[in-house]
Design a protein around this nucleic acid. Structure first.
Lengths: 221, 221
DNA sequence: CCTTATTCAGTGACAAGGTCACAGAACTTG
DNA sequence: CAAGTTCTGTGACCTTGTCACTGAATAAGG
């Protein structure tokens, strides 16, 4: 028996009839993980489907020579579709999902997932929507990496990372890993931003002192 | 009534019971399109699901300033999942699918598709497998573009484009659009390959004269 | 508290790839 | 065959990535 009714939380389950939801609450497990936990990865392919109840998961790809790129983030209320993809993939891939905060996940056995997809149209369209969303996310990543300028991408990402706040706690290396580039490149561009008065830097911390100007750069494409 | 039993052709339908297949043959349409036809695109979002009976579809993304990149190809017997994604996407995207040869497609109305996914596990897993496959394809593209060397990627692509043959009929611009780079870059690298005796070029034509050497380059990562 | 590691950021030189402008070669069409 | 179009080659320059190394900021240990 679960203490929380997680079926309230997901678009795909909140509209389901009570009996179905009760059944789900019985078959699914709730798991807590610490920040930094690897939800899935090349060596760690889960055999169940994962729904994120709370926290965020950062999905990134790693190159041979130590460079990373963030593909997208899974937010609370979303499903982690790459786990499905991983399960079906024979080919090698090198994406991994890391808990970016402490997280709470709902683990649904493959069989229950399958049954739910078959029987509940609401759940089915939730799953397809999530898949589509991720495909679109990846299209965006391809577009950025193949055709985007690094200063534009950096300005954009700084604004996203800051959210409503003016400060970001991140090293240059971490930001480089967001964008799939090298640390030196980020150092250079941040230095430039600082000289132009757009940001203030200190070790491991960036203050956005001119968000509108950054937004102008981010949108100049 | 359709002349051909296309349900033979797809992994997701060939195992279905006869009555279901007959029903499908009735509701689905068969369409022929000429090479170059745009199967889907930003301005052209189909409202049905598309399965490719014959030919190939090249799915590519276009940047603002005239550069392209090929994301993947849909081969006969596969479904074109991006159409589903496009249908669900509110956000802008700029991918398009172009018939790379004359093609024959099966057009399945959304409703029939939905019913089939609900009722037939075989079809369901076919659809999920296709989605996963595309996700993995895109992961590969991201990896190549973000971390790959252009000479390695070019050698690889030349071998793929040639297939069993030694000759490729393509302009430098077309190859650049495969890899998401500029024409001049391809011209330079091809020139280099030619000087090293790996290929012979003439206008619009490339002969791979040393496939093993190219393969060595392609695999040097 | 000071010393010593360790992590983080800055920098210059160079390589790789992308952009621009233009020239000449190879096909096509009238 | 002449004229136009498409394709390829090339040099100069800019952006981005790589390498090697430096010093600064912080953490850890005595």
């Amino acid at each position: 028996m679960n203490a929380i009714d997680w079926t309230e939380r997901f678009k795909g389950t909140m509209a389901l009839p009570r009996p179905v939801r009760d059944r789900l609450l019985n078959v699914a497990l709730i798991r807590d993980h610490k920040k930094g936990y690897q939800v899935f990865g090349p060596e760690n392919v889960p055999d169940s489907l994962i729904f994120l109840y709370d926290g965020t998961i950062r999905v990134s790809q790693t190159s041979g020579n130590g460079r990373d790129i963030v593909l997208y983030r899974v937010d609370a209320g979303e499903s982690c579709v790459l786990t499905t993809a991983c399960m079906l993939a024979e080919e090698a891939y090198n994406a991994e999902g890391i808990a970016e905060s402490d997280i709470k996940v709902v683990v649904l056995p493959k069989m229950s997932f399958d049954r739910l997809v078959a029987e509940e149209p609401a759940f089915r369209s939730f799953v397809f929507a999530t898949y589509s969303r991720r495909l679109i996310d990846l299209l965006r990543v391809v577009d950025d990496v193949a055709f985007g300028r690094i200063d534009v991408r950096l300005a954009e990402r700084l604004l996203v990372l800051a959210g409503g706040d003016r400060e970001i706690a991140a090293t240059h290396q971490e930001i480089a890993s967001e964008l799939g580039t090298a640390r030196e490149v980020i150092s250079r561009v941040l230095h430039d931003f600082q000289e132009r008065g757009l940001i203030v830097q200190s070790r491991g911390r960036i203050t956005l002192s001119a968000k509108p100007a950054l937004r102008a750069i981010a949108e100049s494409d």
